[in-house]
Amino acid sequence: MEVPGLKGRVAVITAAGQNIGKATALAFARAGSHIVITGGSDPAKIEAVADQARSFGVKAIASVCDGTDEAATTALIKRAVAELGSIDIAVSCVGIRPHQRLDEITLQDWQTVINTNLGSAFILTQAVLPHMRERKHGRLLYMAGTDALFPLANRAHVVAAKHGMHGLAKAVALECGPDGVTANSIAPGWLDTDRNAAWYPNLEETYEHVQATVPLRKLGTAEDVANACLYLASDMGKFVTGHLLHINGGEFMV
């Protein structure tokens, strides 16, 4: 699939073993971008995605890497630059979404969610920015989620982290725009993806409600979100920065 400005680029996608991360990695590979993908604990999953990406004729690096580990993330980016020549695009997909009432959230719970969701995005940003600034070109994308603007109950820590991710995107957009770097966040709505049942009580009822009430009357797919990433990372989206793009079938209109 020809997408202006993506062939031969190098994209790093975190949490790419399944769902949005996987779909995004494969979308970039189909568009001719070399990919660097990470996963938290299952090397077989991310290696399978890398193998699939290679079938499109691009290079792929797969690495088990904890997104909250600054040293490991920095080392992976240095390896990617050494082997692939650059880092042009970074997509932060790491995220956990515990379902907890506000008065049940401990400080440790709070710090775990903030460090995992927002901290990993910050660490990835710092690792890739020097390489992007040197080349005067870069695209940073943060998977902020609808929680970034429309909070869900029993997710105070998740909501705070997602707000922070879009805040980070705006800060990067402002500070790094003169260096040719854009930064945007994406807010996926309800998608037909694998989910941790403990994080989504009454999921089937939620799905039924969504499909009965959103204007498009259906759930989205991980590929819908991946296509948005392609747009923002390509030459088609080169004048878009500091923006939060909703992919939600019309559930929220802003």
Rank of each mutant, 00 (worst) to 15 (best):
A222D: 13
I37T: 09
S92M: 12
T112Q: 13
R9H: 03
L141S: 01
A127I: 01
V58P: 05
G95V: 07
D235A: 06
E175H: 11
G189S: 08
D235Q: 08
K78G: 13
D88M: 08
N184H: 02
Q100W: 03
I35C: 07
K136L: 10
L102Y: 06
L216F: 01
A197N: 03
R155C: 04
D42A: 03
A72Q: 12
R101H: 13
L124R: 06
V36F: 10
V172A: 08
V81R: 03
K162D: 05
Y207N: 15
A144M: 07
R54P: 08
L141E: 08
R54Y: 05
A183G: 10
T213Q: 05
V240F: 14
E208N: 14
T193C: 10
R79E: 12
T14I: 07
A198G: 06
R217A: 11
A29Y: 01
R217Q: 14
L141T: 01
L118T: 00
A50P: 14
G145Y: 02
A144T: 04
S92L: 11
D51K: 14
A62T: 12
M132L: 07
L6Q: 06
H137K: 15
L174P: 01
G164Q: 02
M165W: 06
L76E: 04
N154M: 10
E251R: 08
R195A: 15
D66M: 14
M1N: 02
L216S: 00
G17L: 13
V158D: 11
D235F: 03
E83P: 03
A23M: 13
V12C: 10
R155G: 08
G220K: 08
A60W: 04
L76D: 07
A23C: 05
M1K: 12
H157P: 14
T193Q: 14
H131T: 07
G40Y: 05
G8C: 00
A71G: 00
V158E: 09
A183L: 11
A11D: 06
D42E: 03
V128C: 15
I96C: 10
F150D: 12
A197R: 05
T206M: 13
H157I: 07
K59T: 02
A171W: 01
A15C: 12
D192C: 08
I89A: 14
V81F: 00
T213M: 08
T112Y: 00
W110I: 06
A148L: 02
G67T: 07
Q18G: 09
G180L: 08
E251C: 00
I13Q: 01
V94D: 14
G8Y: 00
L216Q: 12
S86W: 03
R9N: 02
G164N: 03
A60R: 11
V214G: 04
Y207R: 15
I114R: 10
S41D: 13
L174H: 04
F239P: 00
L232H: 07
M165H: 07
S55T: 15
A169E: 04
K136M: 13
